[in-house]
Design a protein around this nucleic acid. Structure first.
Lengths: 333, 333
DNA sequence: ATGAAAGCGCTAACAT
DNA sequence: ATGTTAGCGCTTTCAT
C-alpha cells in the first residue's frame, strides 16, 4: 500500500516522459495522438495504476454521462422490467443511470432539482407524477428529457408512448373477436394518463361499434385495486361477458375476484383481457390474455431520442408510439 | 433567456458583495458564517438562479455522493422491491444511487471498474455474481462495499444477510409444525449462496430430526424453473407431503405444477412453503405460506453499515443477520 | 466571521 | 503529433 493517493495524469506524464495533454489524449477516444505514444502512455498508466478521474473530466467537459431515471412504483412488474431494460440500454450506450424512485410525489421536485447540479446528460421520466415545472427547468438547462407514457398536454420533451386510442381499440377488437357482447372495463382512479386513456378509448370503441361498456372505478392499478373493484361493483358488471382490466397487475386481481371471490368461470362465464403482458400473466394460475407492449422497443426509442437531442438540441420534439401485440391465452375464447 | 451560462459562485459573490469563499460557506451546512450574510447570499443566489455545481464540489472534496447499486435479475419481485427500498433509503440519506444491473456476468467487472472513476461514496452489491477482484479494488480505493446475501467465503466488505442455517431451520420447523412428515425441497442449480444455503440447512434440519428430505434440482430460481422441476422429478417427490420451495418465485411455479399439471390438491395432498414473501404469494390464486425476510431492515442495515465505514474506514468488517418471520397462509395446514 | 490565494485533476485552445 | 498555457467552479487553509 505504498500508494495512498491516486496517481494523476501528472504522474503518468512523468513516468511516460510526455506532457499531461498527451496523457489526456491517450485516454480520449478520437484524439490525435501517435499510436505508439498512446501505447507507451497506457502502459505507464497500467503500471502505476492510473485511471482518469471522471469528476475532473466532467468538470472540464461540463458533461457527466449521468442520466436520471425517474420511476414510480418501482416494484410493480412492468416498471421493474422497464427500469431494468432502461438501465441496460443506457449502460450499453456509455451512460450511467441514476435511479430516482419517486415515493411521495411531494419530494420529487426537490430531489430532481438537486440532481440537476450533477450536470446530467439526460433525464428519462417514467413516473406517474409529471413534475411539470421541473421539465421546464431541465429544458432551460439544456438537459434532454424523455417522457415515457406521460400526458402529452404537459410541457415539452421527447415522448415515447402507447397510443391510447390504438390501445383501446385493439383491446376492444380483441375481446370482440372473441365473441364478447357486453363489455366492462376497469378505470383506475389515479388518473394515469396512459392507463385512463386506453380505457376511455376502449369504451369509445365499444360504443362506436354499437355495444355498451360499463366502466368501474378502481382505487389504483394494484392487484388489490383490481380485485376489490370487481367485488365492490359486481352488481354493475355481473351481466357482462367480457372485461378489460387496464393493466395486467389489476387484471390478476380481477381474475382472482371473479374465480375465487365470485365463483365465476373464466372464460366461459366471462372473458378477461389484461394489458402489458407481465410475467405473471403467463403463470399457470392466470394464463391471462393480454396486450403486450414492446418494452424493448420503448426503451431503445427513449435512449435514441435522448442521444439525438444531446447531439442536436434543436431537433423538434419527437413523439413515438410503441407497437402493441395481442397475446391470446386462456382467459379469452 | 439572458443567461445562457449557469451563474457561478463568482457571480453570486459580486451580486451579494462578498467573496467567493463566503458563497461557498453559505452553501456548506456546518460552515462558520454569519446568519445574516448567509441569508443575503442565499437571496442573491435565488435571484440570479445560482446553484452549487456538484461536479466542481465533488472534484474538490474528492467525494461524489454517488453509490453504485449492483443488482442482477432486476425484474424479479424480491429484487425489484429491494432496489426500490435501497434507492429510497440512499436518497433519504443524501446519496445518489447509480443502478448497475448486471446482465451478463462478464461485463460487470469492466462496468464496475469504470464506475470507480466517479469517486463513489460506496457500493452495495446484491447481485448473484460476486465480482471478487472488484471488491478488493474497491477496498483499495477506500470505497465502502456492502454485500447483501453474498457468499461469506469471499473477500471483505460489510455484510447483511439471511442466516442460511436459521432460515433452513425455520422453514423446517414451520412445515413440521404443520404436520409434514415426508419432506422435499427445491435446490436451484445456479448455486446462489443464500438460496442453496437455506435449502441445504432445511435438509440438514430434517435429517437431524429423523425425517427424510428429498432434494430436487431446478434450473434456476424462476417461476418456470420451479414448475418444471416438480413436473420433471415428480416420481421422486410424489410420496412427500410437504415441500419447501426455496424462493417464492419458484414456489409459485411449484404450486402451479402441483395443481394444474399434476392435479394435486394443496395443502391436503401436499403442503407448500415458499421464501421471501413476495407480493404474488399473497395473491388469491396462490395464497402461499412463506417466510418473510425483512427487506426494510436489510436495507437500513446496509446503508448504516456503509455510512459507518465511510465515517470510520477502520471499523472492523461487520456481519448482520436480518429477521425472518413465517407468514402462514393457505398452502400449509 | 471574512477574504486572498492555492489548488482539486482534468481538457482544450493555441502554438510549434 | 506534441507541449504550453489557461481555465472548469468549487473548497479550504491561512491570514486578518
Amino acid at each position: 500500500m505504498t500508494d495512498h493517493k491516486r496517481p494523476t495524469s501528472f504522474d503518468v506524464a512523468r513516468v511516460a516522459g510526455v506532457s499531461r495533454s498527451a496523457v489526456s489524449r491517450a485516454f480520449t477516444p478520437g484524439a490525435s495522438i501517435n499510436a505508439q505514444t498512446r501505447e507507451k502512455i497506457i502502459a505507464a498508466a497500467q503500471d502505476i495504476g492510473y485511471r482518469v478521474n471522471t469528476l475532473a473530466r466532467n468538470l472540464q467537459t461540463q458533461e457527466s454521462q449521468l442520466v436520471a431515471v425517474l420511476a414510480s412504483r418501482m416494484d410493480s412488474p412492468v416498471r421493474a422490467r422497464q427500469v431494468k431494460l432502461l438501465t441496460h440500454a443506457l449502460i450499453k450506450e456509455g451512460y450511467r443511470p441514476l435511479l430516482l424512485t419517486a415515493e411521495s410525489a411531494s419530494d420529487v421536485p426537490r430531489l430532481l432539482s438537486s440532481m440537476l447540479d450533477y450536470c446530467l446528460s439526460g433525464m428519462i421520466v417514467t413516473s406517474d407524477s409529471p413534475p411539470d415545472a421541473l421539465i421546464e427547468e431541465c429544458a432551460k438547462l439544456q438537459v434532454p428529457v424523455v417522457l415515457i407514457n406521460r400526458d402529452p398536454s404537459l410541457a415539452g420533451g421527447d415522448r415515447v408512448q402507447i397510443d391510447p386510442k390504438a390501445a383501446g381499440h385493439l383491446a376492444f377488437d380483441t375481446l370482440r373477436a372473441a365473441g364478447v357482447q357486453r363489455f366492462a372495463a376497469i378505470l383506475p382512479q389515479d388518473k394515469t394518463y396512459s392507463v385512463a386513456g386506453r380505457v376511455l378509448a376502449f369504451q369509445a370503441a365499444a360504443l362506436h361499434a354499437g355495444f355498451d361498456c360499463v366502466l368501474i372505478p378502481s382505487e389504483g392499478q394494484s392487484y388489490d385495486a383490481g380485485r376489490q373493484a370487481v367485488i365492490k361493483h359486481w352488481d354493475q358488471i355481473s351481466h357482462c361477458d367480457g372485461i378489460f382490466g387496464a393493466t395486467d397487475l389489476a387484471t390478476c386481481g380481477v381474475l382472482d375476484a371473479l374465480r375465487h371471490d365470485l365463483g365465476r368461470s373464466v372464460p366461459s362465464d366471462i372473458q378477461v383481457l389484461g394489458f402489458d403482458d407481465i410475467e405473471q400473466a403467463s403463470w399457470g394460475s392466470y394464463n391471462m390474455s393480454s396486450i403486450k407492449q414492446d418494452l424493448e422497443g420503448q426503451v431503445s426509442m427513449a435512449v435514441a431520442a435522448m442521444r439525438q437531442r444531446l447531439t442536436d438540441p434543436d431537433t423538434p420534439a419527437s413523439l413515438q408510439y410503441q407497437t402493441l401485440t395481442p397475446v391470446l391465452r386462456g382467459t379469452t375464447k
